[in-house]
Structure formats: C-alpha cells, structure tokens
Simulated assay, not measured.
Amino acid sequence: MKYTRFEKARIIGARALQISFGAPVLVDVPAGMLDPIDIAMLEYDKDLVPITVIRE
C-alpha cells in the first residue's frame, strides 16, 4: 500500500512514541542510533512497522 506523506508522518510518529516508551524494536539498530524517530524510520523503510492505515 502506498501511503501519503501525512500517513507516513503519523505512522513514524506513533511508532517512535511507542519505542520511546519501551516497546520492542523490530530491527537491528546500529550502535550509535539512539533517537526513536530514526529507529522508527528504519523500521518503516524495512516495512516492519506494525501499524496500518484504514481508508474509507
């Protein structure tokens, strides 16, 4: 599914919030990467984010 830039921002933001509150990370994080937004973007790029969009 192709997401709009707004949906992408919402997905990455929601996932980053989950990661910052201690949710398990679904990718192997490089040694220097600590920012939850960067980790969420890495998950999004690898298509591993467990969040979907429902359109009506």
Rank of each mutant, 00 (worst) to 15 (best):
F21V: 02
I39Q: 06
Q18H: 09
P24N: 10
P36E: 06
D38S: 14
L42V: 01
I12S: 00
A16D: 05
V53Y: 02
T4P: 09
I19F: 03
L26P: 00
R10F: 01
T4N: 10
P24E: 14
D28R: 13
T52K: 14
D38T: 14
K2Y: 12
R10M: 12
S20G: 01
A40E: 11
V49S: 00
F6I: 10
I51D: 03
E56L: 06
E43F: 07
I37R: 12
Y3C: 04
I54R: 13
A40Y: 05
I39E: 03
L34W: 01
Y3I: 08
D47E: 13
K2E: 14
A14G: 01
Y44H: 08
A40V: 11
L34R: 12
V49D: 01
V53D: 00
L48N: 02
D28Q: 12
R10H: 01
M1D: 10
A16I: 10
P36R: 05
D28K: 14
A14T: 15
A31L: 11
D38M: 12
F21R: 15
P30V: 11
L26T: 06
L48V: 12
P50K: 05
K46C: 04
D35L: 13
A16W: 05
F6D: 13
E56F: 11
D28L: 04
V25N: 03
K2P: 06
L26V: 04
Y3S: 01
Y44I: 01
E56W: 01
V27R: 00
A31N: 09
V53T: 04
F21N: 12
D38C: 09
P30Y: 02
Y44K: 06
A23C: 02
F21T: 12
R10A: 15
F6S: 12
T52E: 13
L17F: 06
L26Q: 05
A31H: 10
D28M: 05
I54G: 00
P36L: 11
I11N: 00
S20M: 10
Q18G: 03
L26W: 00
L17S: 10
I54M: 09
R10S: 09
D28A: 13
I39Y: 04
A40M: 08
T4R: 10
I12L: 02
R15D: 06
L17Q: 13
R5K: 12
A14I: 06
P36Y: 08
M1W: 05
R55A: 09
I37H: 07
E43A: 05
G22A: 08
A40L: 10
V29Q: 05
E43G: 09
A23T: 09
L34E: 12
V27S: 03
D35G: 00
I37D: 00
A40K: 09
I12K: 02
A23M: 05
Y3F: 15
V49Y: 00
K46V: 07
A40H: 08
P30T: 08
E56G: 13
A16C: 05
M1Q: 11
R5T: 13
I39N: 03
Y44R: 03
D35N: 15
R15I: 10
V49Q: 02
I11C: 01
R15E: 07
D45R: 13
F6P: 00
A16P: 03
I51Y: 06
M1C: 07
P24V: 11
V29F: 07
L17V: 10
